[in-house]
């Protein structure tokens, strides 16, 4: 018998908190057996499963510094995520991971950071934002740009409100479609860039996570602000079915996103035609 244990065998986690954030997005806090840490880094994902239903790759939303538990926000888009939405506190799930590359927070010490996320892109981004805020003095300016389709699609609304009041964060927010109750900016996320003052491209790293359609437009905007490819970091969505570089579903050209991604520096993938 080959000595290695199965790479497809999950650990067990218990749901310790769960609540709906929008009509389709549900927040979860999980605890691994024995209160172990998941051991992830900002930007990584894990495979969450229910025996009998299936498995799905989900971004981790909490900072590694949240000890003994981890958080996710799961959008109801398929069989597995739908079943996860029907689970409540006390239920157990399978967890494999963490998998994939992470935001290089260590290497970015001393730099200005601009976090650009659209919709559910805020979920993996939040792990990096939390990490940066927990180590606030390691970084220069922290700019958070967030766009949602409309006010019902906003995630982590209490945190958004707190960030908007925090003096050491420059927080800009927009919704694509306005509403009489919304007093803020209306328009796609690229309309926020002109509001950033005294931007120092050479000393800034941009993080971009959002729906597939968002990347092209945001990247063009960042180029206009003199950002170079090597200072733009993206996280790409693919269907990482196995998470371990075998099943092929997440492959972009030569790259297995579950292994060499989902977090990439833009210059590392600019020759991959299928990436963005």
């Amino acid at each position: 018998m080959y000595p290695e244990k199965s790479i497809y065998l999950p650990q067990v986690a218990t749901i310790t908190k769960a609540n709906m954030m929008t009509k389709v997005d549900r927040y979860f806090e999980f605890e691994l057996e024995g209160g172990k840490d998941l051991g992830h880094k900002p930007g990584q994902f894990a495979e969450i499963s229910i025996p009998g239903i299936g498995e799905a790759p989900i971004s981790i939303s909490s900072s590694p510094n949240l000890k003994g538990k981890f958080e996710m926000v799961i959008r109801n888009v398929g069989v597995v995520t739908n079943a996860l939405h029907n689970l409540s506190v006390g239920s157990t799930v399978g967890v494999r991971g963490p998998y994939g590359t992470h935001f290089p927070m260590e290497k970015l010490k001393g730099r200005d950071l601009v976090f650009v996320s659209g919709g559910i892109g805020l979920v993996p981004m939040r792990s990096a934002i939390h990490y940066a805020l927990e180590n606030r003095k390691d970084y220069g300016r922290i700019m958070i740009l967030f766009g949602a389709r409309d006010i019902t699609q906003r995630l982590f609304v209490d945190e958004l409100a707190a960030w908007s009041k925090q003096s050491d964060i420059e927080f800009l927010e927009t919704v694509d479609v306005g509403n009489p109750d919304w007093k803020g900016n209306v328009g796609v996320i690229t309309t926020l860039f002109s509001k950033i003052k005294d931007f120092h491209a050479a000393n800034t790293t941009a993080f971009v996570v959002g729906p597939p359609v968002m990347y092209k437009f945001v990247i063009v905007e960042l180029f206009k602000m003199d950002m170079s490819k090597s200072n733009i970091i993206v996280s790409l969505e693919r269907h990482m079915k196995c998470g371990v570089g075998k099943c092929g579903h997440c492959q972009i050209n030569r790259v297995y996103v579950c292994q060499e991604g989902p977090v990439f520096a833009l210059d590392a993938i600019s020759e991959l035609r299928e990436a963005i």
């Binding site: 199965s6 497809y8 065998l9 999950p10 067990v12 025996p51 009998g52 157990t92 799930v93």
Partner: peptide, 12 residues
């Protein structure tokens, strides 16, 4: 790859 009792994560 795996066998289990439906819905019981500890049974994988």
């Amino acid at each position: 790859l795996l066998k289990y009792k439906t819905g019981v994560a500890s049974s994988y």
